[in-house]
Design a binder for these strands. Structure first.
Lengths: 199, 199, 199, 199
DNA sequence: TTTTAATCGAGACGGTACGTCTCGTCTTAAA
DNA sequence: TTTAAGACGAGACGTACCGTCTCGATTAAAA
């Protein structure tokens, strides 16, 4: 699970002393999420999370280096659950469906706001950019590439296609619209897929 | 005697106040720009700008409501100068040239970093998003639309083309690459133009 | 007049249309006085005086080096008018009458508040202490000494009396009571005179 | 999910907060004292105290409402230690000794400068006057009265003596001389005691 | 009557300190 | 040993005044 990375090993083998409190962990993640949605990224403070989660600040700093790591935990967990990359069916259809889900995710769901906030914060701090790549962008991109590769292997996509250029041409417009507050309609997404994948 | 409300004669003498100091204005804009590039958005503080510009904090607060407004001033001034929208020649060539300039602006120039930082900050604060639209995105988009409209009028682009969808499909991938720290090569831009405008 | 001291010599030499505006001068003195009574010494700011007097800050700085000088102007003017040192009659009676007037001045009149405020400020700043001595305490003390000397000359007071010790023993308790907010009754003053001058 | 109000279990764990840091407290008191003596009351700033004491401003504001409260703390501590009210021996001798100590305290010791500064500030701000009474003047006056009462009980002082009038007649001249920068000699004090207590 | 120079109100400027806020670290006592 | 509570050093926030400095407009004596 995504958050395991920030957590000491959880296998309940034998010794008890080093037990992380799961209630506290969830309370922190939810509090951070809520604060982001209610008040924006600036309204997410460690102090505020601690107060809302009923947890001591030190407990947060013990397990997460910064508030960005908390938000990354919630993003990774939520995106893994709610923004799955399809692994069957015709690839163009799979891509279209994935991009529609991405549009919905970015514009309608709380976790989408977290994604946009983290992408925003990555512009402000190099450390955030690095973490965002490592924990979210890169693993996801790997799976997105695999999806396209399957299309190439199946002959649905041309052999010489530049995977990253294609993916950025598909994802970029959707993210850009979300970032600028523009609506991302199904029509916009479908036209995009048509232009990029079927030309 | 002390309680008398005596006041100096109120004849409207002295009408013209001191005018704004242009040196101070420029020093502030440059200091903000420098700090953003050197230390990132978080390193841009009103206190730091004042210190580096050799200006009093109050002078900053007198003319700018927030540091975002300062950065917007530098962005708008710089983008107007260095990221002009071509107004002659074949439209596809003009668009290609404009997007190449945009790619260079975003990845190589200080003002491009300001743009990305403001787009990032717009994710954190609604007020910034509004200002960013009013001062930068919307006016620029109007001119970008005009460029495409010229292409439609000249028969270079199909009559029914969705201007905003086209623009977001062109600009989105470039901005997204810049946001994620990916290189934005001339090849990527040219392929994009080919796909979107010549399909 | 007291304020002349802060003003350059007024001989109309050569070509000088440099006439000081008397309205502004009075407005400033009254505004300072009012602010002191209404808000205390801390509430007396040059900015506040200027605003209330309807005068420019520069006009104040042109004629007075600091707000203390403004208050000294009002104090000296008022004390000269309302706290006269008697120069006839039996000396003990004259002293008693003077001290009764002093008690009233300190506890009931606005100018008394100015005196206490300046004595207070003299504890905070050496420059104020010096000015306060030069403009108020020393000249007044000279006249108080003259009063007692008249008593010695007339044989009403013993020849070897220490003038300053006697004056401080009379004035000290009254001022101290005023400083600590204690009432200064006629009985207190009269008993003081009896103890100090008739023992 | 994000909006759920999940909170860590609220069993009252962790009960004891950190206690106040005595080192910081003393460093603040000493820094304030030093600054007052070196630069006068105006030179005592919260910022300056914090810097000299090596303490954060917030730590000062956490424990003291204002710089006046800091100075009152040092005054009360020092006066309790160095300006004791004698409680044995003939009362006239005790009073003479106390007043000599007061003269020395006011003119020679740092804490005496604090006392004069606070008495000065009390003229500027009603709140300071109140605090100064509650924390310093009133408790001390109670003990001073007790001293005189002992003299009355012992028959050393007349039965009908007005305690406060007597005390103000003794203390007033000494404080007044200190306030006006005049020397307070042993001869002045002794003559005062003679006049006021033995007439 | 024109010139000329000091006055005036207005307010921008570089500064200092204010009192508040949040950060991330450190300390304590209870569980 | 981990937790909740919260004190701590650090430093930015936005505000209030400081004292200096233009800036036109006004004004009145000297030329």
């Amino acid at each position: 699970m995504a958050t395991e990375k920030t957590t000491a090993s959880r296998a309940p083998k034998g010794r008890a002393p080093q037990r992380r409190n799961e209630d506290a962990r969830l309370a922190v993640l939810h509090a951070a999420d809520d604060l982001l949605v209610e008040r924006g990224f600036g309204g997410v403070t460690v102090e505020g999370i601690a107060a809302r989660a009923g947890v001591a600040k030190q407990t947060i700093y013990r397990w997460w280096p910064s508030k960005v790591d908390i938000l990354l935990d919630t993003l990774v967990e939520d995106a893994d659950k709610r923004l799955k990359i399809p692994d069957e069916g015709p690839v163009v259809d799979a891509v279209r469906s994935y991009l529609r889900a991405l549009a919905r995710f970015l514009t309608k769901e709380d976790a989408g706001k977290v994604l946009l906030a983290l992408l925003g914060e990555a512009q402000h701090e190099a450390e955030t950019a690095t973490l965002f790549h490592e924990r979210y962008l890169d693993p996801r991109r790997a799976r997105e590439r695999a999806l396209l590769k399957r299309g190439v292997a199946a002959g649905e996509l041309p052999a010489g296609v530049n995977l990253d250029a294609t993916l950025d041409s598909l994802i970029g417009p959707i993210v850009y619209r979300a970032l600028t507050g523009a609506p991302v309609t199904r029509g916009f997404v479908d036209a995009l897929v048509d232009r990029v994948l079927e030309s």
